[in-house]
Write a protein that binds this DNA or RNA. Structure first.
Length: 448
DNA sequence: TCTGGGGTCCTAGGACCC
DNA sequence: TCTGGGGTCCTAGGACCC
């Protein structure tokens, strides 16, 4: 008997999280906004029913939305990350080999057979709904790509109770999913090519032009030809659509798993001039955050890149852009070293007449700290810096990111609706309480 | 006036090595 | 005069994901 892929994906995750401690919001049109309250990134079912789209700038629809009684919230990352962790832990008890694919979805593996897998999945869904208040949809299929397709039925067909299984393996073994099935073909034919997992805008245009308008046509395309004309990635998608699993390496970096590079970048709450000291302050803060992630995954970096970009003034104007990479003499995870490198990288390279709207720090050339420490270079490098980083981590973990910092990122004023600084930091004017991560914002329950 | 952030993999091409 | 071949590693850029 073949194993089944179980895909669990929270419904409208950010919007659902907002209702957990505010049950009065349930059923109401609700949108969650990106950083700086920029654009819509999550919508409740009622907001979707009103025709509000994802990705729309908030200032464009604000008036219309308030007329329609839509509630808006700033992104409350602390709350979402905390609820995500709890949701993942709950689900990890039901099936093997959980892989957290993103903040709101995970893949699991079941060898229980189709009927028991469905039952188990339904219990898992109820457990998360009642234990956490987050609705989750579940797709069961022989491969990830098919699970991604069938989960749409779970989300949109209310008769399915939030769980959908790939047609043709309803009753029997998951392996039978590879045998021909009218309903499976119908489902593939109803899936536009751009909705297939791994096919983005560019690729779907090319495939449409090549006479492949939907998932069914892609499944029946010649894999060799697809590989030659497109890529080995798309060839794998063809095989997965045929029910043949093509394993992918784990992609998730949470829980300290290693990633290949670390990027920390943000838009400013308002444009900053090229001579503004605040830019160095921002780079220093981002460098320290990046170092925290670096230490969490037990790595050191050998390259520090800093960049700063301006807003285009016209469609033909690419906007101001400054970027430089510094190579460290000794790979490091020391916030002092990395912040100095990031700030130094752009010193004197910013245009005084330009207005900048975003800055970022990227760490690359990552290697395992223990392995590096044991090399000849590592033995020669100063290693007494670990303690500073660890202390920063401890203080930040306990008192929040605004209470301690080095250099330009030193003591800053603290306000709830500005992430770190009162000048350039993220604007979050519609932030809900961070009920699970901040004592002073804990939910209050009244007994009557 | 205002439009997110952080990852992944693949490919091509150059440097380098034996 | 004639000037190899096969491998690895690294990087930049493109496409995609949530």
């Amino acid at each position: 008997m073949r194993d089944a892929v179980v895909l669990a994906d929270a419904d409208n995750f950010f919007a659902s999280c907002e209702t957990v401690f505010h049950p009065a919001l349930r059923g109401r049109p609700l949108v969650v906004l990106s950083n700086n309250d920029g654009c819509v990134v999550s919508r409740s079912a009622a907001a979707k029913a009103l025709g509000l789209a994802n990705g729309v700038p908030w200032f464009v629809i604000r008036d219309q939305a308030s007329r329609l009684g839509v509630v808006a919230r700033s992104s409350n990352y602390e709350l979402y990350a905390s609820l995500s962790r709890r949701m993942m832990i709950l689900m990890s008890h039901f099936f093997a080999d959980q892989e957290r694919y993103s903040i709101d979805e995970c893949f699991l593996r079941s060898s229980l057979g189709v009927i028991r897998t469905r039952h188990h999945a339904a219990v898992m869904r109820e457990t998360v709904l009642h234990g956490l208040g987050i609705p989750v949809s579940i797709g069961i299929a022989p491969t990830r790509t098919l699970a991604k397709i069938v989960i749409r039925l779970a989300k949109h067909d209310p008769h399915r109770g939030g769980v959908a299984t790939w047609p043709s393996c309803q009753e029997g073994d998951i392996a039978r999913a590879t045998s021909p099935s009218r309903t499976a073909d119908d489902l593939l034919a109803q899936t536009p090519i751009g909705d297939v997992w791994g096919v983005g805008r560019r690729l779907s245009k090319r495939l449409l032009a090549a006479g492949i308008p939907d998932a069914l046509h892609l499944r029946d395309a010649d894999p060799v030809l697809i590989r030659r004309r497109h890529s080995v990635v798309l060839e794998r998608t063809v095989l997965e659509l045929r029910g043949i699993p093509c394993p992918q390496p784990p992609s998730d970096a949470s829980d300290g798993r290693r990633t290949g590079r670390i990027l920390c970048s943000r838009m400013f709450s308002h444009p900053l001039g090229g001579t503004d000291d605040a830019i160095a302050g921002a780079l220093s803060v981002y460098a320290q955050r990046a170092c925290t992630r670096l230490r969490r995954q037990g790595s050191v970096c050998s390259r520090v890149s800093a960049f700063c970009s301006g807003r285009p003034r016209s469609p033909s104007d690419p906007g101001a852009w400054a970027e430089r990479t510094v190579i460290l003499d000794d790979p490091s995870d020391d916030p002092l070293v990395v912040a100095a490198a990031a700030c130094g990288a752009l010193r004197g390279r910013l245009d005084p007449d330009s207005r900048y709207v975003r800055a970022g720090v990227m760490l690359t050339g990552l290697s395992d700290r223990m392995t590096y420490d044991s090399t000849l270079n590592g033995l020669g490098a100063r290693r007494d810096d670990h303690r500073l980083g660890s202390v920063l981590d401890l203080v930040t973990g306990r008192y929040g990111p605004s209470r301690i910092g080095i250099g330009c990122a030193g003591i800053r004023s603290v306000s709830r609706d500005h992430d770190i600084a009162d000048d350039w930091g993220m604007r979050r004017s519609l932030l809900s309480p961070r009920s699970t991560t901040h004592w002073e914002e804990m939910a209050v329950v009244h007994a009557v």
